[in-house]
């Protein structure tokens, strides 16, 4: 309980700091948002003042932040300067695609990454060597490059999969998101595979595993209950953090595949200085990142009693 309370307090503090940093960064960013509002046209001073009033551009920084934050907590992220639409609505419209993309990639990472890592960790020899070689290569490929290469091979040359757009309906969406998800997940799959392999190797060498063997437990039981059980701690942590970091990379992949998701919209809005949208999306992305990290922390506590109970011998 004390553990949960502590985590909750840290969570709130992190989100507050993050929201402040986001707001401050936008505030200090070069270029006046008023330019975006007027679209470069000359406007009457009265109109200008009205705009400034409406977007609170003249109030002191802290008071602007306070307004923004209290509105954000109520789900009101303001109005887009470019489209005059409600930012929350804009975000909800596009969140689906980003969410499906990241989820899809996450499933790939968990299934393929951990799967390959298990194979390599438990099967020394050529299986292990191939996984190690392939993952060292894949880990070095950035998402935008894998996007280009995958598109060239599977969309242009082989025409197996669509290269652009998100598709309609569940199946079509799934097909359309396959290439983006793979390019998003590729280097993370490699990282997770390697961490999984190393953790399993390290754990197998532990003395407590030898104890388990010496007690006559079947190999399966030793591997599942001792090697994998303990290796699950670092594997879960790294996998969770890797998946959380996809949130940032998703913007690149969405742009490359013309997906109308949050990341792509973030890029578009920042180039057009659409302040409210940039702040809103950043806040949502940071929130997602922080929450994922909390999930990782909780998983860690569930898996490791030393964290849950605190290290105290009686």
């Amino acid at each position: 309980m004390a553990f949960l309370a502590k985590r909750a307090a840290i969570l709130v503090a992190t989100i507050l700091v993050a929201s402040f940093v986001i707001f401050a960064a936008m505030y200090m960013a070069p270029g006046k948002p008023i330019g975006a509002l007027t679209g470069g046209r000359s406007v009457s001073p009265q109109a200008l003042e009205a705009l400034e009033q409406r977007y609170r551009l003249n109030e002191p920084f802290l008071s602007q932040y306070g307004h923004w934050l209290s509105n954000a907590i109520r789900g009101d992220l303001g109005v887009s300067i470019a489209t005059k639409q409600d930012v929350s609505e804009l975000i909800v419209e596009r969140a689906g695609i980003t969410l499906s993309l990241v989820l899809y990639a996450a499933v790939l990472i968990v299934v393929i990454g951990i799967g390959l890592g298990l194979l390599a960790g438990l099967r020394p020899g050529w299986v292990d060597t191939s996984v190690v070689v392939a993952s060292s290569a894949a880990a070095a490929v950035p998402a935008f490059l894998s996007a280009i290469v995958l598109t060239l091979i599977f969309a242009v040359t082989l025409s197996w999969l669509p290269a652009l757009g998100a598709g309609e309906g569940v199946v079509d969406r799934f097909v359309h998101l396959t290439l983006p998800a793979i390019s998003l997940a590729l280097s993370s799959i490699a990282v997770v595979a390697r961490v999984t392999r190393t953790s399993i190797r390290e754990e197998s060498r532990k003395e407590h595993v030898q104890t388990a063997v010496s007690r006559g437990l079947p190999r399966r039981a030793v591997i599942i209950r001792h090697v994998l059980r303990n290796a699950a701690i670092p594997i879960t942590t790294v996998t969770g953090i890797t998946i959380a970091s996809l949130i940032a990379v998703s913007a690149v992949v969405e742009s490359a595949f013309s997906l109308n998701g949050l990341g792509q919209y973030l890029i578009v809005s920042s180039s057009s200085k659409d302040l409210a949208v940039v702040q809103g999306i950043s806040l949502v992305l940071v929130l997602a990142f922080v929450l994922l990290n909390v999930v990782v922390d909780l998983a860690y506590a569930v898996l490791d009693p030393r964290v849950r109970l605190g290290a105290k011998a009686t």
Binding site: E207, H208, T211, A212, H226, R229, N230, L303, D304, P305
Partner: peptide, 10 residues
Amino acid sequence: DPRVAINPVR
């Protein structure tokens, strides 16, 4: 050393 000979997470 029982500390390392017993699985710490079970």
